[in-house]
Structure formats: C-alpha cells, structure tokens
C-alpha cells in the first residue's frame, strides 16, 4: 500500500505549476502595463486631489502659506457658526430634489412625445437637443433677459393673457424655479438618452399588453417603465450630480439680476437676490478662492463628496432591490 503524502505548502512547486505561475505573472504584468495609463491618470487627477482635499480639510490653509493642522475645527464651524453654508446647502438640496424630479420627468415626457411622432421627428429632436449645446453663461444671460420682469418677452406674453409674471430672477422665491426652468430647457442630452431607451423597448411587449387589454397608462407603467428603468436611474443620478455641481448658471444669474456683469473679483453679487442662488459649490469656491479659506472649502468639498456618494449608493441599492423583486415576481 502506498500512501500519498500531501504536498507541503513550502515545498518546491512542480515544473508545470511553475510554468503556469510564470504565465499568470506575465499576464498580470501585461494587464498592469495596459492599465497603467488609466491608473496613473486616476491617481493623479482623482486619487491625489481626493487625498489632498481630505488632508486640507483638517487644516487652516490660505493657499500661500503652509497649512496648519486644526483637527475638526473646519467641520465644527460648518455645523455651528458659519451661517451661509446652511443657506447654500439648502439651495443645493432644493435643486437636488426639485430639479432632479423635474428634469427626469420633463426629459421622459419630451422623449415620449417624440417617440410617438409620425413626421418631422428629426427636426423636433434636433430642436429639443440644440439648447443643451448652448454655453451655460450665454444661455443664462439669455434666460435672464427672456424672464426680465420689466421688459422680458415671457412677462409681456403673460400680461397679454392677464397673468402677472412676477420677478423671476429678481425674486428670492422665484430665482430657483427660474434656474430650474433654465436647466429643463437645456436637458436635451438626457432627453436623447431616454428617447434611445424608449425606442429600444420591444414592440411585441406593447402588442401583448394591448391584447391583454392594457390601456396606454398601464402599458406605460408595466412595459415602458420597467424596460427603461436602468436608463431612468442613470438620468436620476446624472441629474443629482448636475444639481450638486450647479455653479455657472447660479453665479451668472445672480450677477446679471443684480445689474452687474462683473462676476470675477466681486463676491458681493454672488447669490443675489438675498442669497437665493448661492449654491453649495459656489460658496465652496468663494470660501476657497476668494476668502482664501482653503481648509474650510476642503471640508465643504469632503461633505459634498460624502453626500453625493451616499445619494448614488442609495439609488443604486434601491434599483437593484426593485430589480430583484421584479425578477422574483
């Protein structure tokens, strides 16, 4: 009877295993070689700024002199003595909630209409997409003009039908809805993506649902929505990130509404009227680059990163959960 002893872990590997191991190592090196440019780019343009931002968030740093460690002071200030960060966070949260919902619903609505058009599809699609190509600063200035409460065409048309259009960008209550309208006007990219998803839904599913007696609403609810839900999720995440980063339009609209074209170098107009357009990224920029409080700005950026990552994680988790439930059903 012969007994085969188990090979010891530290014993020399067989020549075949060695060759296989060498092959694996070579493959790893090849993969690493091809990944290196992307990895390097990721480290330099994402990894380093991220680590640096976290490090700076625990310092007092004026951009010129070496930072000094202050522990959690910046975070403590954010949640206690600094009042405008709360205003800025509220404005951004408002945009995250309202703008995200409106943008996705609007893009879905427009895409649904276009997908049902029988003629002139190309023209309508192009017209709906074109505004998203307009530079944000120019588009905002044009919008501020269109919605000018005194001589803007929108209020003039509204006046013809007996409606008082209001102050739009000059009113703290109307400025954020006005910015939302501006964002909707420029949501052509999302509309095109949703349109592509809508056109990708197999027509047989609609036919089957129709044979089962489903009306347009039930067809939309039970066929269209489940089919395009991944694209809608992308739309929601994209819109949330868009709202969290809302900067140029807010800064230009506030300045233009205050009668000034001087944005660079003048922080006094930023947020006008009454800080209703002061978004979180705008205040972060002002703190970091105008007031030279880079440590505090870094702490704000870390919080923004955590919140946006949290939002994304929650949404992805929710979608996966609902997909699993659907598959199980």
């Amino acid at each position: 009877m012969t007994t085969t002893l188990p090979a010891r872990a530290d014993s020399a590997p067989a020549p075949g295993r060695l060759r296989a191991g060498a092959g694996r190592a070579r493959r790893h090196r090849t993969v690493a070689f091809f990944m290196a440019p992307a990895a390097l780019g990721f480290l330099i343009f994402f990894g380093y700024p991220l680590v640096a931002t976290v490090v700076y968030s625990f310092t007092k740093y004026d951009l010129i002199n070496p930072p000094t460690f202050v522990g959690f002071d910046n975070y403590a200030r954010m949640f206690s003595t600094e009042p405008l960060v709360r205003t800025a966070a509220y404005n951004t949260l408002w945009l995250v909630v309202v703008l995200t919902v409106c943008r996705v619903v609007f893009a879905l609505g427009v895409a649904s209409v276009i997908s049902r058009l029988r003629s002139g599809v190309g023209l309508v699609r192009t017209l709906c997409y074109l505004p998203s190509l307009a530079p944000p600063a120019a588009a905002t200035l044009a919008f501020v003009f269109l919605f000018n409460s005194e001589f803007g065409p929108v209020n003039r048309i509204l006046k013809l039908v007996g409606i008082d259009g209001g102050l739009w960008f000059n009113s703290p209550a109307m400025s954020k809805p006005s910015l939302t309208l501006l964002a909707l006007w420029g949501s052509g990219e999302l509309m095109i993506i949703i349109l592509a998803a809508l056109l990708d839904v197999p027509p047989e599913q609609y036919e089957a649902a129709q044979l089962d007696g489903a009306g347009p609403i039930r067809r939309f609810w039970h066929v269209t929505l489940p089919s395009i839900s991944p694209v809608l999720l992308f739309g929601v995440i994209n819109s949330i990130i868009y709202a969290l980063q809302f900067f140029t339009q807010a800064i230009v609209a506030g300045s233009a509404a205050a009668g000034s074209a001087d944005v660079a170098g003048n922080s006094k107009y930023i947020g006008a009227p009454q800080n209703s357009t002061l978004t979180y990224p705008v205040w972060l920029y002002v703190q970091g680059f105008r007031y030279f409080n880079m440590g505090y700005a870094a702490a704000m950026a870390v919080l923004l990163f955590v919140v946006s990552a949290g939002f994304t994680w929650l949404l992805v988790r929710q979608l996966r959960k609902s997909q699993h439930q659907e598959e199980a059903a």
């Binding site: 000018n148 005194e150 001589f151 102050l167 009113s171 009668g259 000034s260 074209a261 001087d262 009227p273």
Partner: peptide
C-alpha cells in the same frame, strides 16, 4: 425690484 430689473447693465 420690478423697476430695477428694467434698468440696463451697469456698463
């Protein structure tokens, strides 16, 4: 504010 919004840019 209504009146102000009808005034042109500063420069």
């Amino acid at each position: 504010e209504q009146f102000k919004s009808g005034l042109g840019d500063e420069y």
